[in-house]
């Protein structure tokens, strides 16, 4: 009903009609996308506005810049969502189908490992957290207090986290193939985290707990989710809801374990 054209046209409109008709649908589509994004961002705007005006009682600094910035955020989120539906979701599903029909377990598992490793190794949040951790370690006296020792510590830590995410995606894919229930893996992981917290040096615990969160980048999550759901849909006897999700959960658990293990070994 949104796309129905008005019943009558004047002469001028008759000439322009094909163009208007061609533009109407994408325009309405874009407007609805923008409205949805605006709804998603409304809470942030309200919270920041409320605290700025009512609690801190200060005017907004640089109101023009903030408005332009908000327009960028709304437009960017709309484009991103459209890109998910056109690009990332179909890509993940196609990959899942191709791997399933090729039937090579080795190819699938090596892809899973590389996807986890590759998505994490260059992650800016991880680079930041590794540097932070190397400072903590050198202040705590775990490594010599010079720049070289710190940078090699940070590099090794990054490799450890990226490797652990690779292993997590690999286990996650294997779990979908075998139909293992996720909660045993997660609860086992929790017990391991708890146990290692006791033995790990106190400075590394906070970093380790936070490193679980850095592995979930905005591009990897849709891709991995579509891959998991695609695999669970393609493989007979698997339920996409029960078996398709869960890779991300594993990918945020293994870094905690591996970072603490790294802290214990060093």
């Amino acid at each position: 009903m949104f796309f129905e054209s008005p019943p009558s046209y004047s002469l001028v409109e008759q000439v322009q009609r094909p163009l208007v008709k061609r533009l109407a649908r994408p325009l309405i589509w874009a407007l609805r996308r923008l409205l949805v994004s605006l709804r998603d961002l409304a809470p942030i705007i309200l919270v920041i506005g409320f605290f700025q005006i009512a609690v801190l009682q200060q005017p907004f600094p640089n109101l023009v810049g903030v408005t332009v910035g908000l327009l960028c955020v709304v437009g960017g989120l709309s484009l991103f969502m459209q890109g998910l539906e056109y690009g990332l979701f179909p890509l993940g599903e196609t990959l899942a189908q191709s791997f399933a029909s090729k039937g090579s377990l080795l190819a699938l598992l090596s892809f899973a490992f590389c996807l986890g490793f590759g998505a994490t190794v260059a992650e800016p949040a991880l680079i930041a957290i590794a540097e932070e951790a190397s400072k903590v370690a050198s202040e705590g006296g775990a490594i010599p207090d010079d720049a070289e020792a710190r940078s090699s510590y940070a590099f090794n830590l990054r490799m450890v986290v990226a490797g652990s995410v690779g292993i997590a995606v690999l286990i996650g894919v294997l779990r979908i193939l075998k139909g293992w229930p996720i909660h045993w893996l997660i609860i086992g992981g929790y017990l391991l985290v708890t146990l290692m917290t006791v033995f790990a040096p106190a400075e590394i615990v906070g970093v380790a707990y936070d490193s679980g969160g850095v592995t979930t980048s905005t591009i990897t999550v849709p891709l991995v989710t579509a891959l998991g759901v695609g695999l669970a849909t393609t493989i007979r006897g698997r339920n996409p809801l029960v078996d398709g999700f869960g890779i991300i959960a594993l990918a945020s658990l293994t870094p905690m374990i591996c970072v603490m293990a790294y802290g214990i070994v060093i």
Binding site: V74, G76, L77, F80, L84, Y86
Partner: peptide, 16 residues
């Protein structure tokens, strides 16, 4: 095109 949308959209989003 979808991948391009994701990249440009994410860049705009981050800038904002």
């Amino acid at each position: 095109v979808g991948f391009g949308f994701v990249l440009v959209g994410l860049a705009l989003f981050l800038i904002g």
